[in-house]
Design a protein around this nucleic acid. Structure first.
Lengths: 223, 223
DNA sequence: GATAGTTTCATACAAGTGTTTGAATTGCAA
DNA sequence: TTGCAATTCAAACACTTGTATGAAACTATC
């Protein structure tokens, strides 16, 4: 076991390369070159390339989930077991947005790696990813307590849309900057968080009937 | 030129395979096997694998954009050059959602291919994708006309969130079904469209100050 | 029906992939 | 120091990838 230097050098190099270039075009030879270790070290320490990726993803997703739950729990304890919906949503999308947006040099490699993982869906990760369901269910539970008059279906849709806005904004941040000719400031992370939380809150709070029926009627007219 | 049978067989097979399994693990040999043509036919008819992918993407994205613009134009003409925001949003997200959700057998291969393309971001497609900006700008223009009191920044954010909800819902439809234990019905496409349009409309209509400031204050308390 | 141009085909090629091997080196305990 | 296990290393392996080749088959024109 000794120093573990090689092992952690591989993990760090792999995470950095995957974060920067995606899983598609990073080879084991790229990784070992970046880590300054021998090619065979990967298979010696991890068994296979897929197991390396899986280990990377598992450890990082545990960390992210812990961070989100920490914020959620703190808020719920303060509110006597019930937190306002805005704070719950902020605990859900805040950590990821903060990690993946903002000035280039402030982005953590870990978060950028996780985004890649959520985008590219490579086999070893897909196999693991189902565990995230349990994690999301905890947030669904908190949201239900915050909005006891909303149906389960509405809760799940709100959760879905909150994650949608956060992840999509991260993934397409470059395009949004270009589209808006720089007017949308993706480096102002707290503004982005506030926007996402605000819209998701409205989505969850709005009554179903009054918000949706008109849209449907209008659309029928336009066909 | 003659029958073009081989050429279109390749296109059809490639589109189907890419839609089903993604770009990552579909080889030229898979494609020619599916199309029942010779391996060399791809390079003969398209020049290279990347050019095949590019041609596929270009033709499909032209078709999708045309469909969206058709709906938009129809609505604007009916409204005398100004369509309600709900209808604009519906024209933006409707075609894609309708193509990619709904009962398995009703999903068009073309749309599923486009989703893959929007997710996996393979080099030949990334090179082309910037053209989509111009297309989205047309929608931004229509939205500005529908909501003249909103700032450009808010318009772009609304556009971004609408696309976010649509694309994410498609990408993660399976997870949402599992998370909600089947309570969220992803096969009811018009309901999904209505939900996305409704939330995006609220996001665009809501005043900035009153909707976001409270969320920020609450979050500060919870830290 | 011969000819020229197009399309198909089996096959080979060069490059790159993850993985394995077995010998060399290292670090540590007896 | 000696011995032994853990680790590193260069090299090779087996396989897959996209692409290229040149002959064969086809098609249409004269």
């Amino acid at each position: 076991m000794a120093s573990d230097h090689t092992r952690s050098a591989i993990l760090a190099a792999a995470e950095r390369l995957y974060a920067d270039r995606g899983f598609g075009d990073v080879t084991l030879r790229d990784i070992v070159a970046e880590a300054n270790v021998n090619l065979a070290a990967v298979n010696y320490h991890f068994g296979s390339k897929d197991e390396l990726i899986a280990e990377l993803f598992v450890s990082r997703s545990i960390a992210t989930n812990r961070e989100r739950l920490r914020e959620l729990k703190a808020a719920e304890e303060q509110g006597g077991g019930r937190a306002p919906i805005e704070v719950i949503l902020r605990a859900l999308v805040g950590p990821t947005l903060r990690g993946c947006l903002g000035p280039e040099n402030q982005r953590s490699t870990a978060a950028r790696f996780m985004i890649r993982a959520s985008i590219e869906s490579v086999p070893p990760i897909r196999r693991i990813k189902n565990r995230e369901i349990d994690h999301l269910r905890k947030f669904a539970g908190a949201m239900r307590r915050a909005l006891p008059d909303r149906s389960d279906v509405d809760i799940y849709w709100g959760l879905n849309f909150a994650l949608a806005m956060a992840h999509h904004t991260i993934r397409e941040s470059e395009r949004l900057t270009k589209l808006s000719e720089g007017q949308c400031d993706l480096d102002d992370v707290e503004d982005v968080v506030a926007r996402v939380v605000s819209v998701a809150t409205m989505a969850l709070r709005a009554g179903k009937a009054e918000a949706r029926a008109p849209a449907r009627a209008l659309a029928r007219d336009a066909r």
